[in-house]
Simulated scan of single mutants.
Amino acid sequence: MGFERSCCFLFFFLTVGLASSSPSTHISYDALRVQRGRGLVEKFYVKNDCPVDFGKEDMTPLTSKCRGPHYNPLTCCTGFKQITCKYLPLINKLNNGCATGLFYHVNRRGGYPDGLFDQICHDDPQGLSCTTVLGRSNGNKGRN
């Protein structure tokens, strides 16, 4: 009985460890919350190790479709994912400045209110799912 119990605990911890170490397919809600409040103002005071210059990123998938004053969650969140899912691991790593830099440029170009995407974009408990966007972008890469 003790051996079986030990095996069950070992299996549980291995399963949890493998699940947490697998690459994420979601933009974390913590990354979305970066766009709120002083985070964008502090962008210039925080160490920025992000290798992406979001100032040069094409934001038209978002800015051409997501317009106020009544922001449609479907079109806004789809456009948002088209930009962010390409940089998923960088955006989710909160201490590198990528999420802050992304929101700074998204809000600057689109004139979006603070916290918009955090308020209107919700998929599941893990965050915003990038599986459909990543699947499409991988398919397009094969055709080039």
Rank of each mutant, 00 (worst) to 15 (best):
M1R: 02
M1A: 06
G2S: 14
G2P: 12
F3V: 15
E4M: 09
S6T: 12
S6Y: 09
C8K: 10
C8S: 07
F12D: 02
L14S: 05
L14A: 11
V16N: 01
S20L: 08
S22M: 05
P23G: 06
T25Y: 08
H26E: 15
H26T: 15
H26L: 10
H26K: 11
I27M: 00
A31S: 08
R33M: 01
V34P: 01
Q35R: 06
R36N: 09
G39T: 06
L40F: 02
L40A: 06
V41Y: 12
V41N: 11
V41D: 15
K43F: 13
K47Y: 02
K47I: 08
N48S: 07
D49Y: 13
C50S: 12
P51W: 05
V52H: 04
V52G: 02
D53W: 11
F54T: 11
G55R: 10
K56R: 14
D58S: 15
T60Q: 15
P61Q: 12
L62N: 05
T63K: 13
T63W: 15
T63I: 12
S64T: 01
K65P: 01
C66H: 03
C66P: 02
C66K: 00
R67L: 14
R67W: 04
R67I: 07
G68M: 14
G68A: 15
P69M: 14
H70K: 07
Y71V: 13
N72A: 10
N72H: 06
N72V: 08
P73S: 10
T75P: 07
C76W: 00
C77E: 10
C77R: 09
F80R: 00
F80T: 04
K81E: 13
Q82E: 14
Q82L: 13
T84S: 09
T84W: 00
T84H: 01
K86Q: 11
L88Y: 09
P89Y: 15
P89S: 13
L90D: 06
L90V: 09
L90T: 10
L90I: 13
K93F: 11
L94Q: 09
L94A: 11
N95A: 12
N95K: 10
N95S: 15
N96C: 11
G97S: 07
G97I: 03
C98N: 14
A99N: 10
A99H: 05
A99D: 07
G101R: 00
Y104L: 14
V106M: 06
N107E: 15
R108L: 13
R108T: 13
R109N: 13
R109C: 03
R109L: 13
G110L: 15
G110I: 02
G111T: 06
P113I: 03
F117H: 01
I120C: 13
I120E: 12
I120H: 06
I120L: 12
H122R: 08
D123P: 03
D124L: 10
P125F: 02
P125S: 02
Q126C: 03
G127Q: 06
G127T: 08
S129T: 12
S129W: 03
C130Q: 04
T131V: 02
V133K: 01
V133Y: 05
L134P: 02
G135Q: 09
G135S: 11
G135W: 12
G135I: 04
S137H: 05
N138V: 03
N138I: 04
G139Q: 09
G139K: 04
N140K: 07
